[in-house]
Each structure stands twice: as structure tokens, then as C-alpha cells.
């Protein structure tokens, strides 16, 4: 086989955490430090910190426009200890591809010292679930480029003042979907199932995972696995956002937990096409733990305060479908028709 993908410099070996108390021992250094200006209780900023910690010093990080650029990376007060570059809102996939391609070409041609360098491009939900889908999809096709795309999902275009995106939950009050007298529910779409969509559609992408900063060891390990795998990888994180979700910053960690405990945001990883549920989600799938009702999760957030009883019921019924009807619970919604039952 004379494929153009023959040359691959390989990836770094990064130890896994396993448990949260291993972090101080195995990943004590910070590569995302002071200097950012995000809101108090911003879980997306915590994702940045854990992601940089997981990647370590021999990394290049590219960041799409959004809160994690505008509020995060200001001239003269950059929080990034590793090399960092802004990329356009819809081009995290292209940024990762271009960076990985340059490193690969220059190393192969002897113009740069050979060494595995982590390439991470992050994007928000606007940048990774709406606008950047085509660039990420293209990036996930190239087996020859070692790169990770991390989509930090705060469920709105937060930086531009909280507008709905394809990742916003059904019914959410955003500045583009305010409830009113005629229509209580202005956002009548269900959240896009993005990690599964990328996983299913890109068979040369050998690692896809979902994660949440309320489970930091799991998150660090997933980022490290995304970097260790050869070829492209994708990680989707769900990040409570006090400003956009309208709650006291005190509840950020709690909401991150509730998203998983209610089954709304299942944690899983797919390695070489094999799916593994992780953490609480695994116990839920194998019947060792019951899903909490979504009501507490919804009631804690101002963006759902216009909900009436039927809205809560509808929301719960949709979550139940994910677990009861989907072929792969919480992940893949296909049903396979049985021709014998026609």
C-alpha cells in the first residue's frame, strides 16, 4: 500500500489518572493559569484548565472565537503557558488540520526536529456543533494527522450574549428565544447529538468521547486518550454556564453532576469503534443506578423558569426515550426493523 499517510511521527505517552486524587501526583503542572476574565463559576474555563493540564508542555492549542477566546485570551494577560493561536469561529477542524499538516510536512522533510507534538483545537458549541461541522468532519477523516478537537459546550452562543445554538436544550430561554404570551416555547428543537454524529460518520476517527468537568479525572484521561490515539479524535464536554443558564455560580459543579445523573448527558468513549460507558453512566446502563428525574436540574436554572408542568413532562419523556428506545442507550437513536415482524 502506497498511501500518502505512511509517515506518522507518533504520539506522546501520557499517564492516565484513574482517580481524582491522582491528579496532584500525575499532572500537577498548570498550563492554563491566571489572566483570563471568564465569569465566576465558568465550567468552560475549567475545561480549558484541565485540557491544558492533560496535554502538557509539548502541545500547540488552537482556540475558536467564543468566550474561551474573547473573555479568556486578552493581549498582555494571556493565561496560556503553551503556544496558543486563535482560529475563526467555524474553523477548529481546519486549524487542527493545518497545524498537524505543517508539523508533519516539516518533520518529514527534515525542516523541523522530529518529535510528537500534541495538536488540540477547541471550539464552543456554536463553533463545533453549528458553524464548524464541515471543518471538523473533514479533520476527522485524515488518519495521517494526530489531532484532537475539543468542543466545550455551554449550550449557547454565550459570548455574543446567550443566543440559541444547535446545542441548546429544548425550550431554553435565550436572547434569541425569549418566552412570550403567544409562544412560551420559542426554541422547539432538541439538542443535536453531536459526539455520536461525529463518531458514526467518521470511521477513521479512532477516539470519540463525552466528558464533564464535574468528573475531572475522567475528563483528563479522555483528553489524554484523544491525544495518544493515532489520527484524529473528538471530545465533547458539557459545561454549566452561570450567565447563560441563569443560576448562582455556586451550583456549577452540582449542575455538571446532575446532567449526568439525570441521563441527559451520558458519559462514554468510543475507541477503535468500541463503545464504553464511563462513570455513573455505565452504572445507569447496567441497571446499578437509577436516573434522577430531570426536574431538579431544570428548576435550578433560570433559562427554564417559564416551564409549566407539561413542559417538564415532555422534557422527561424525551430523556426517557434516549434510554428506553434508542438502539445504543443515550448514544445512538437508530432502531433496526425486523423484517420477520412485517
Amino acid at each position: 500500500m502506497a498511501e500518502t499517510s505512511e509517515y506518522n511521527i507518533g504520539t506522546q505517552e501520557l499517564p492516565l489518572m484513574g482517580k481524582v486524587n491522582a491528579i496532584p501526583e500525575k499532572a500537577v503542572e498548570e498550563y492554563f493559569t491566571s489572566g483570563h476574565r471568564t465569569c465566576q463559576g465558568c465550567e468552560s474555563a475549567l475545561i480549558m484548565r484541565l485540557m491544558a493540564k492533560a496535554a502538557g508542555p509539548r502541545s500547540i492549542i488552537l482556540g475558536s472565537t467564543g468566550c474561551m477566546y474573547v473573555a479568556n485570551t486578552t493581549y498582555y494577560s494571556t493565561p496560556w503557558v503553551v503556544p496558543w493561536m486563535h482560529t475563526q469561529l467555524g474553523s477548529s477542524g481546519s486549524a487542527a488540520t493545518g497545524t498537524a499538516a505543517a508539523l508533519r510536512a516539516l518533520m518529514r522533510k527534515g525542516k523541523m526536529k522530529e518529535e510528537p507534538i500534541n495538536v488540540i483545537a477547541f471550539c464552543g458549541d456554536g463553533g463545533g456543533i453549528d458553524m464548524g461541522v464541515s471543518s471538523i468532519s473533514a479533520a476527522l477523516m485524515h488518519a495521517k494527522y494526530n489531532l484532537a478537537i475539543i468542543c466545550y459546550d455551554n449550550e449557547s452562543y454565550a459570548n455574543t450574549d446567550i443566543q440559541i445554538s444547535g446545542a441548546s436544550p429544548w425550550g431554553a430561554n435565550t436572547t434569541f428565544t425569549p418566552p412570550g404570551k403567544k409562544f412560551r416555547i420559542m426554541h422547539d428543537c432538541w439538542k443535536k447529538n453531536i459526539a455520536a454524529m461525529y463518531a458514526v460518520g467518521h470511521t477513521r476517527c479512532n477516539y470519540v468521547a463525552t466528558a464533564d468537568a464535574s468528573y475531572p479525572a475522567d475528563l483528563i484521561d479522555k483528553v489524554r486518550k484523544a491525544l495518544a490515539v493515532k489520527g484524529p479524535a473528538f471530545v465533547h464536554t458539557l459545561d454549566p454556564c452561570p450567565k447563560g443558564w441563569d443560576y448562582d455560580p455556586f451550583y456549577s459543579h452540582k449542575l455538571g453532576e446532575l446532567a449526568v445523573e439525570t441521563g441527559l448527558f451520558p458519559l462514554w468513549e468510543m475507541t477503535d469503534g468500541a463503545l464504553t460507558y464511563t462513570g455513573i453512566s455505565a452504572r445507569q446502563v447496567y441497571g446499578k443506578r437509577r436516573r434522577k428525574p430531570v426536574r431538579e436540574y431544570l428548576e435550578t436554572q433560570g433559562r427554564f423558569h417559564h416551564f409549566v408542568e407539561e413542559d417538564y413532562e415532555y422534557f422527561q419523556s424525551e430523556v426517557d426515550k434516549m434510554w428506553d428506545d434508542w438502539m445504543v442507550p443515550g448514544v445512538i437513536p437508530f432502531k433496526v426493523n425486523d423484517p420477520s415482524k412485517k
Partner: peptide, 17 residues
């Protein structure tokens, strides 16, 4: 996958030398 991607990819490659 598009001209946007086409030009963004080489833009980032140029930044890496």
C-alpha cells in the same frame, strides 16, 4: 471540504513555519 477550510488550513500551517 470548502474554500473556508482550504484557506484556514494553510493559514495555520504558515503560522507553524
Amino acid at each position: 471540504e470548502s474554500e473556508h477550510g482550504q484557506f484556514e488550513i494553510v493559514k495555520h500551517a504558515s503560522a507553524c513555519g
